[in-house]
Amino acid sequence: MPAARRDLPSLDIGPFLAGTAGRGAFLDALRRACHGPGFFYLTGHGIPAAQTGAVLEVSRRFFRLPAAAKLEIENIHSPHFRGYTRLGHEITRGSADLREQIDISDERPARTLGPDDPLYLRLDGPNQWPRQVPELRAAVLAHMTRLGELSRSLVRAFAESLGLPAGHFDRSFAHEPRSHVKLIRYLAPADKHPAEYDQGVGSHKDGGFVTFVLQDDVRSLAADGPRPASPGLQVADGAGGWLDAAPRPGTFVVNIGEMFELATRGYYRATVHRVVSPPPGHERLSVAYFFGPRLSATLEPVPLPAELAREIDDPSPPDPDNPIFAQHGENTLKSWLRSHPEVARRHYADVDPPKGHQ
Protein backbone atom coordinates (compact mmCIF):
# COMPACT_ATOMS: atom_id res chain seq x y z
CA MET A 1 0.00 0.00 0.00
CA PRO A 2 1.53 3.36 -1.01
CA ALA A 3 2.11 5.99 1.65
CA ALA A 4 -0.31 8.89 1.96
CA ARG A 5 0.37 11.60 -0.61
CA ARG A 6 0.51 15.35 0.04
CA ASP A 7 0.36 16.72 -3.50
CA LEU A 8 0.28 15.62 -7.12
CA PRO A 9 3.56 15.89 -9.04
CA SER A 10 3.95 18.21 -12.03
CA LEU A 11 5.82 16.80 -15.04
CA ASP A 12 7.19 18.74 -18.02
CA ILE A 13 7.01 16.57 -21.15
CA GLY A 14 8.72 19.24 -23.26
CA PRO A 15 12.26 17.76 -23.04
CA PHE A 16 10.94 14.32 -24.00
CA LEU A 17 9.09 15.67 -27.03
CA ALA A 18 12.12 17.70 -28.11
CA GLY A 19 14.67 14.97 -27.35
CA THR A 20 16.75 17.33 -25.21
CA ALA A 21 18.91 16.75 -22.15
CA GLY A 22 16.02 16.59 -19.68
CA ARG A 23 14.49 13.58 -21.42
CA GLY A 24 15.83 10.99 -18.96
CA ALA A 25 14.75 13.04 -15.95
CA PHE A 26 11.22 13.21 -17.37
CA LEU A 27 11.08 9.42 -17.80
CA ASP A 28 12.26 8.91 -14.21
CA ALA A 29 9.64 11.37 -12.92
CA LEU A 30 6.97 9.69 -15.05
CA ARG A 31 7.78 6.30 -13.57
CA ARG A 32 7.62 7.66 -10.01
CA ALA A 33 4.31 9.43 -10.67
CA CYS A 34 2.63 6.41 -12.25
CA HIS A 35 3.95 3.97 -9.65
CA GLY A 36 2.97 6.38 -6.87
CA PRO A 37 -0.17 8.49 -7.08
CA GLY A 38 -1.13 7.41 -10.60
CA PHE A 39 -2.00 11.07 -11.26
CA PHE A 40 0.11 14.06 -12.31
CA TYR A 41 -0.09 17.50 -13.86
CA LEU A 42 1.38 17.63 -17.37
CA THR A 43 3.08 20.77 -18.69
CA GLY A 44 5.22 21.45 -21.77
CA HIS A 45 2.72 19.65 -23.99
CA GLY A 46 2.61 22.31 -26.70
CA ILE A 47 -1.18 22.50 -26.98
CA PRO A 48 -1.98 26.22 -27.21
CA ALA A 49 -4.22 27.98 -24.74
CA ALA A 50 -6.31 29.24 -27.65
CA GLN A 51 -7.30 25.67 -28.48
CA THR A 52 -8.18 24.60 -24.95
CA GLY A 53 -10.00 27.88 -24.39
CA ALA A 54 -12.05 27.34 -27.55
CA VAL A 55 -13.18 23.89 -26.39
CA LEU A 56 -14.27 25.23 -23.01
CA GLU A 57 -16.06 28.18 -24.60
CA VAL A 58 -18.12 26.12 -27.07
CA SER A 59 -18.92 23.71 -24.25
CA ARG A 60 -20.24 26.56 -22.12
CA ARG A 61 -22.35 27.86 -25.01
CA PHE A 62 -23.89 24.43 -25.52
CA PHE A 63 -24.70 23.84 -21.87
CA ARG A 64 -26.45 27.20 -21.63
CA LEU A 65 -28.86 26.31 -24.45
CA PRO A 66 -32.51 25.62 -23.54
CA ALA A 67 -33.14 22.04 -22.44
CA ALA A 68 -35.11 21.20 -25.59
CA ALA A 69 -32.17 22.16 -27.80
CA LYS A 70 -29.76 19.98 -25.83
CA LEU A 71 -32.14 17.03 -25.87
CA GLU A 72 -32.14 17.03 -29.68
CA ILE A 73 -28.86 15.12 -29.39
CA GLU A 74 -29.66 13.10 -26.25
CA ASN A 75 -27.62 9.91 -26.06
CA ILE A 76 -30.74 7.76 -25.85
CA HIS A 77 -30.92 8.17 -29.65
CA SER A 78 -27.45 6.66 -30.16
CA PRO A 79 -26.57 2.96 -29.93
CA HIS A 80 -22.95 4.16 -29.70
CA PHE A 81 -23.49 6.06 -26.40
CA ARG A 82 -22.82 9.40 -28.13
CA GLY A 83 -24.50 12.70 -27.46
CA TYR A 84 -25.98 14.60 -24.54
CA THR A 85 -26.60 13.14 -21.09
CA ARG A 86 -28.92 15.19 -18.92
CA LEU A 87 -28.13 16.02 -15.30
CA GLY A 88 -28.19 12.96 -13.05
CA HIS A 89 -28.53 10.39 -15.84
CA GLU A 90 -25.03 8.92 -15.67
CA ILE A 91 -24.45 6.42 -12.88
CA THR A 92 -21.26 5.77 -10.93
CA ARG A 93 -21.25 2.94 -8.42
CA GLY A 94 -25.04 2.85 -8.44
CA SER A 95 -25.59 6.57 -7.72
CA ALA A 96 -26.44 9.49 -10.01
CA ASP A 97 -23.70 11.95 -10.96
CA LEU A 98 -24.60 15.65 -10.79
CA ARG A 99 -23.27 16.53 -14.21
CA GLU A 100 -24.54 16.99 -17.72
CA GLN A 101 -22.26 16.15 -20.60
CA ILE A 102 -21.72 15.39 -24.26
CA ASP A 103 -19.92 12.17 -25.22
CA ILE A 104 -17.93 12.27 -28.46
CA SER A 105 -15.75 9.53 -29.94
CA ASP A 106 -13.84 8.92 -33.14
CA GLU A 107 -15.95 9.63 -36.22
CA ARG A 108 -16.36 6.20 -37.81
CA PRO A 109 -19.22 4.59 -39.72
CA ALA A 110 -21.55 2.24 -37.85
CA ARG A 111 -20.73 -1.39 -38.48
CA THR A 112 -23.01 -4.10 -39.78
CA LEU A 113 -22.26 -7.04 -37.53
CA GLY A 114 -22.44 -10.70 -38.39
CA PRO A 115 -23.55 -13.36 -35.91
CA ASP A 116 -19.96 -14.12 -34.86
CA ASP A 117 -18.72 -10.54 -34.55
CA PRO A 118 -17.97 -9.26 -31.04
CA LEU A 119 -20.69 -7.08 -29.57
CA TYR A 120 -18.29 -4.29 -28.65
CA LEU A 121 -18.05 -3.37 -32.34
CA ARG A 122 -21.47 -1.76 -31.92
CA LEU A 123 -19.64 1.06 -30.16
CA ASP A 124 -18.28 2.33 -33.48
CA GLY A 125 -20.49 4.87 -35.19
CA PRO A 126 -21.21 8.54 -35.80
CA ASN A 127 -21.42 11.30 -33.22
CA GLN A 128 -24.35 13.59 -32.60
CA TRP A 129 -23.57 17.29 -33.04
CA PRO A 130 -25.68 20.27 -31.88
CA ARG A 131 -27.27 22.42 -34.60
CA GLN A 132 -27.29 25.54 -32.43
CA VAL A 133 -23.52 25.50 -31.77
CA PRO A 134 -22.03 24.40 -35.10
CA GLU A 135 -18.54 25.53 -34.05
CA LEU A 136 -18.46 22.80 -31.40
CA ARG A 137 -17.67 20.06 -33.92
CA ALA A 138 -14.55 21.69 -35.36
CA ALA A 139 -13.25 22.77 -31.94
CA VAL A 140 -13.67 19.33 -30.40
CA LEU A 141 -12.27 17.36 -33.34
CA ALA A 142 -9.22 19.65 -33.45
CA HIS A 143 -8.72 19.10 -29.72
CA MET A 144 -9.00 15.33 -30.15
CA THR A 145 -6.46 15.37 -32.97
CA ARG A 146 -3.88 17.26 -30.92
CA LEU A 147 -4.45 15.15 -27.82
CA GLY A 148 -4.23 11.98 -29.93
CA GLU A 149 -0.77 13.04 -31.10
CA LEU A 150 0.26 13.86 -27.53
CA SER A 151 -1.15 10.55 -26.29
CA ARG A 152 0.90 8.53 -28.78
CA SER A 153 4.03 10.29 -27.56
CA LEU A 154 3.11 9.68 -23.93
CA VAL A 155 2.45 5.98 -24.60
CA ARG A 156 5.97 5.66 -26.00
CA ALA A 157 7.27 7.48 -22.92
CA PHE A 158 5.36 5.03 -20.72
CA ALA A 159 7.14 2.14 -22.45
CA GLU A 160 10.58 3.69 -21.97
CA SER A 161 9.81 4.58 -18.37
CA LEU A 162 9.25 0.86 -17.74
CA GLY A 163 12.58 -0.11 -19.29
CA LEU A 164 10.99 -1.27 -22.54
CA PRO A 165 11.61 -0.26 -26.17
CA ALA A 166 9.71 2.92 -27.09
CA GLY A 167 7.59 0.99 -29.59
CA HIS A 168 6.53 -1.76 -27.18
CA PHE A 169 2.84 -0.76 -27.27
CA ASP A 170 2.75 0.23 -30.94
CA ARG A 171 1.03 -2.97 -32.04
CA SER A 172 -1.99 -2.15 -29.87
CA PHE A 173 -2.14 1.56 -30.65
CA ALA A 174 -0.93 1.96 -34.24
CA HIS A 175 -4.24 1.00 -35.92
CA GLU A 176 -7.53 2.68 -34.93
CA PRO A 177 -6.70 3.63 -31.34
CA ARG A 178 -9.76 4.53 -29.32
CA SER A 179 -10.31 8.19 -28.44
CA HIS A 180 -13.22 9.58 -26.47
CA VAL A 181 -14.09 13.02 -25.11
CA LYS A 182 -16.55 14.08 -22.45
CA LEU A 183 -17.54 17.75 -22.35
CA ILE A 184 -18.80 18.08 -18.78
CA ARG A 185 -20.73 20.66 -16.78
CA TYR A 186 -20.94 20.13 -13.02
CA LEU A 187 -23.79 21.76 -11.12
CA ALA A 188 -25.06 21.86 -7.55
CA PRO A 189 -27.77 19.39 -6.45
CA ALA A 190 -31.14 19.68 -8.18
CA ASP A 191 -34.41 19.76 -6.24
CA LYS A 192 -34.76 15.96 -6.23
CA HIS A 193 -31.44 15.55 -4.40
CA PRO A 194 -30.76 16.59 -0.79
CA ALA A 195 -28.68 19.75 -0.42
CA GLU A 196 -25.73 17.80 1.00
CA TYR A 197 -25.59 15.45 -2.03
CA ASP A 198 -22.37 16.50 -3.77
CA GLN A 199 -21.55 13.64 -6.15
CA GLY A 200 -20.33 15.40 -9.26
CA VAL A 201 -18.81 12.04 -10.10
CA GLY A 202 -18.74 9.20 -7.60
CA SER A 203 -15.54 7.52 -6.42
CA HIS A 204 -14.14 5.34 -9.21
CA LYS A 205 -11.11 4.36 -11.26
CA ASP A 206 -11.00 5.05 -14.98
CA GLY A 207 -11.40 1.84 -16.90
CA GLY A 208 -9.15 2.47 -19.89
CA PHE A 209 -5.49 3.23 -20.52
CA VAL A 210 -4.81 6.93 -19.90
CA THR A 211 -6.95 10.04 -19.29
CA PHE A 212 -6.26 13.76 -19.80
CA VAL A 213 -8.47 16.26 -17.95
CA LEU A 214 -8.71 19.93 -18.91
CA GLN A 215 -10.25 21.90 -16.05
CA ASP A 216 -12.01 25.24 -15.91
CA ASP A 217 -12.26 27.14 -12.65
CA VAL A 218 -15.51 27.39 -10.71
CA ARG A 219 -17.60 30.33 -11.90
CA SER A 220 -20.93 31.87 -11.05
CA LEU A 221 -23.88 31.12 -13.28
CA ALA A 222 -24.30 34.90 -13.43
CA ALA A 223 -22.03 36.66 -15.89
CA ASP A 224 -19.42 37.99 -13.47
CA GLY A 225 -20.20 36.53 -10.08
CA PRO A 226 -17.64 35.55 -7.44
CA ARG A 227 -15.64 32.33 -7.64
CA PRO A 228 -15.58 30.73 -4.19
CA ALA A 229 -12.97 28.23 -3.13
CA SER A 230 -14.49 24.83 -3.80
CA PRO A 231 -13.07 21.31 -4.17
CA GLY A 232 -13.59 19.68 -7.53
CA LEU A 233 -11.48 16.79 -8.82
CA GLN A 234 -10.07 14.87 -5.86
CA VAL A 235 -7.63 11.95 -5.76
CA ALA A 236 -7.47 9.34 -2.99
CA ASP A 237 -4.34 9.94 -0.93
CA GLY A 238 -3.73 6.34 0.17
CA ALA A 239 -4.70 6.97 3.80
CA GLY A 240 -8.46 7.44 3.60
CA GLY A 241 -8.33 11.11 2.61
CA TRP A 242 -8.45 13.16 -0.57
CA LEU A 243 -6.08 15.45 -2.44
CA ASP A 244 -7.49 18.37 -4.40
CA ALA A 245 -6.39 18.37 -8.04
CA ALA A 246 -7.13 22.07 -8.41
CA PRO A 247 -7.07 23.68 -11.87
CA ARG A 248 -3.68 24.99 -12.97
CA PRO A 249 -3.46 27.13 -16.11
CA GLY A 250 -1.70 25.48 -19.05
CA THR A 251 -1.85 21.95 -17.60
CA PHE A 252 -3.72 18.71 -18.02
CA VAL A 253 -4.32 16.35 -15.13
CA VAL A 254 -3.25 12.93 -16.39
CA ASN A 255 -4.09 9.60 -14.80
CA ILE A 256 -3.64 5.90 -15.40
CA GLY A 257 -6.60 3.63 -16.15
CA GLU A 258 -7.36 0.12 -14.93
CA MET A 259 -6.35 -1.59 -18.18
CA PHE A 260 -2.83 -0.16 -17.91
CA GLU A 261 -2.70 -1.08 -14.23
CA LEU A 262 -3.68 -4.63 -15.16
CA ALA A 263 -1.06 -4.80 -17.93
CA THR A 264 1.70 -3.69 -15.52
CA ARG A 265 0.47 -6.12 -12.83
CA GLY A 266 -0.21 -3.15 -10.59
CA TYR A 267 3.17 -1.47 -10.91
CA TYR A 268 1.45 1.54 -12.48
CA ARG A 269 -1.61 2.44 -10.43
CA ALA A 270 -5.12 3.38 -11.40
CA THR A 271 -6.13 5.51 -8.43
CA VAL A 272 -9.62 6.12 -7.07
CA HIS A 273 -10.85 9.66 -7.67
CA ARG A 274 -14.07 11.66 -7.60
CA VAL A 275 -15.47 15.11 -8.38
CA VAL A 276 -17.24 17.20 -5.73
CA SER A 277 -20.12 19.39 -6.94
CA PRO A 278 -19.71 23.18 -6.95
CA PRO A 279 -21.78 25.28 -4.51
CA PRO A 280 -25.30 26.45 -5.43
CA GLY A 281 -25.37 29.10 -8.12
CA HIS A 282 -22.02 28.03 -9.61
CA GLU A 283 -20.78 25.67 -12.31
CA ARG A 284 -17.56 23.92 -13.19
CA LEU A 285 -16.57 22.80 -16.70
CA SER A 286 -14.07 20.15 -17.65
CA VAL A 287 -13.08 18.25 -20.77
CA ALA A 288 -11.96 14.66 -20.20
CA TYR A 289 -10.09 12.88 -23.00
CA PHE A 290 -9.64 9.11 -22.84
CA PHE A 291 -7.06 7.32 -25.00
CA GLY A 292 -6.81 3.59 -25.44
CA PRO A 293 -5.86 0.91 -27.94
CA ARG A 294 -8.11 -0.36 -30.72
CA LEU A 295 -11.23 -2.10 -29.49
CA SER A 296 -9.97 -5.53 -30.59
CA ALA A 297 -6.68 -5.19 -28.69
CA THR A 298 -5.82 -7.34 -25.70
CA LEU A 299 -3.14 -5.85 -23.45
CA GLU A 300 -0.71 -8.58 -22.50
CA PRO A 301 1.26 -8.37 -19.23
CA VAL A 302 4.25 -6.07 -19.57
CA PRO A 303 7.67 -7.77 -19.19
CA LEU A 304 8.95 -5.56 -16.40
CA PRO A 305 12.65 -5.46 -15.49
CA ALA A 306 13.38 -7.46 -12.35
CA GLU A 307 14.14 -4.38 -10.25
CA LEU A 308 10.69 -2.94 -11.03
CA ALA A 309 8.85 -6.25 -10.63
CA ARG A 310 10.22 -6.50 -7.07
CA GLU A 311 8.40 -3.26 -6.20
CA ILE A 312 4.94 -4.61 -7.04
CA ASP A 313 2.64 -4.89 -4.04
CA ASP A 314 0.62 -8.01 -3.39
CA PRO A 315 -2.44 -7.85 -5.66
CA SER A 316 -5.74 -6.76 -4.20
CA PRO A 317 -8.58 -9.28 -4.47
CA PRO A 318 -10.73 -8.81 -7.58
CA ASP A 319 -13.70 -6.51 -7.16
CA PRO A 320 -16.81 -8.61 -7.92
CA ASP A 321 -18.74 -5.41 -8.71
CA ASN A 322 -16.16 -4.21 -11.23
CA PRO A 323 -14.53 -6.96 -13.30
CA ILE A 324 -11.57 -5.71 -15.35
CA PHE A 325 -11.00 -7.26 -18.76
CA ALA A 326 -7.66 -7.23 -20.58
CA GLN A 327 -9.63 -7.17 -23.84
CA HIS A 328 -10.28 -3.49 -24.51
CA GLY A 329 -13.61 -3.80 -26.32
CA GLU A 330 -15.10 -5.95 -23.58
CA ASN A 331 -13.91 -3.58 -20.89
CA THR A 332 -15.23 -0.52 -22.73
CA LEU A 333 -18.66 -1.99 -23.43
CA LYS A 334 -18.96 -3.12 -19.80
CA SER A 335 -18.36 0.42 -18.60
CA TRP A 336 -20.91 1.99 -20.96
CA LEU A 337 -23.63 -0.53 -20.13
CA ARG A 338 -23.23 0.15 -16.42
CA SER A 339 -22.99 3.92 -16.54
CA HIS A 340 -25.83 4.56 -19.03
CA PRO A 341 -28.63 2.13 -18.18
CA GLU A 342 -31.26 3.94 -20.27
CA VAL A 343 -29.19 3.60 -23.44
CA ALA A 344 -28.43 -0.01 -22.50
CA ARG A 345 -32.13 -0.85 -22.11
CA ARG A 346 -33.02 0.68 -25.46
CA HIS A 347 -30.13 -0.58 -27.61
CA TYR A 348 -28.55 -3.52 -25.75
CA ALA A 349 -31.46 -5.47 -24.30
CA ASP A 350 -30.04 -8.59 -25.95
CA VAL A 351 -26.65 -8.28 -24.18
CA ASP A 352 -26.03 -10.13 -20.93
CA PRO A 353 -24.38 -8.13 -18.13
CA PRO A 354 -20.63 -8.74 -17.76
CA LYS A 355 -19.55 -11.65 -15.60
CA GLY A 356 -17.31 -11.19 -12.57
CA HIS A 357 -13.96 -12.34 -13.91
CA GLN A 358 -10.69 -10.76 -14.93
Rank of each mutant, 00 (worst) to 15 (best):
M1Q: 11
M1H: 12
A3W: 11
A4C: 08
R5V: 10
P9C: 05
S10E: 04
L11H: 00
F16G: 07
F16W: 13
L17F: 01
G19S: 04
A21Q: 12
R23T: 03
A25R: 15
L27N: 06
R32D: 11
C34E: 01
C34W: 09
C34N: 11
H35F: 11
G36E: 06
F39D: 12
T43M: 05
G46L: 08
A50R: 08
Q51H: 14
Q51G: 15
E57K: 10
E57M: 07
F63L: 04
F63Q: 00
P66L: 06
A67P: 15
E74C: 12
E74D: 13
E74L: 13
H77C: 12
S78E: 00
S78F: 04
H80L: 02
R82N: 12
T85E: 02
H89R: 09
G94F: 02
S95N: 05
E100Y: 01
E100K: 03
Q101P: 04
I102K: 09
D103E: 14
I104N: 00
D106Q: 15
P109K: 15
R111N: 14
L113P: 07
L113N: 08
G114K: 07
L119W: 10
L123T: 03
D124W: 08
Q128P: 10
Q128D: 09
Q132Y: 03
V133K: 05
V133H: 01
E135W: 13
E135M: 10
L150T: 00
L154H: 15
A157T: 07
G163H: 01
D170N: 06
D170G: 06
R171S: 08
E176V: 14
P177N: 12
P177H: 14
P177Q: 14
R178N: 12
L183P: 09
L187S: 11
P194G: 05
A195P: 03
A195D: 12
E196D: 13
D198C: 15
Q199V: 15
F209P: 03
V218Y: 00
R219L: 09
L221G: 00
P226M: 05
A229I: 10
A229S: 07
L233S: 00
V235F: 07
A239V: 11
D244H: 10
F252Y: 14
V254S: 03
I256W: 06
E261Y: 04
R265N: 10
G266H: 10
G266M: 13
Y267W: 03
Y268L: 10
A270N: 04
T271P: 05
V272R: 06
R274D: 05
V276E: 05
H282L: 07
H282W: 06
R284F: 00
A297G: 02
T298H: 11
T298K: 14
L299S: 02
E300R: 15
P303R: 00
A309N: 05
R310S: 08
E311W: 06
I312H: 06
P315L: 03
P315H: 07
S316Q: 13
D319P: 08
P320E: 05
F325A: 04
L333W: 14
K334H: 13
K334G: 09
K334E: 12
L337N: 02
P341G: 06
E342T: 15
R345M: 06
R346P: 01
R346Q: 05
H347L: 11
D352Q: 15
P353I: 08
H357C: 12
H357V: 12
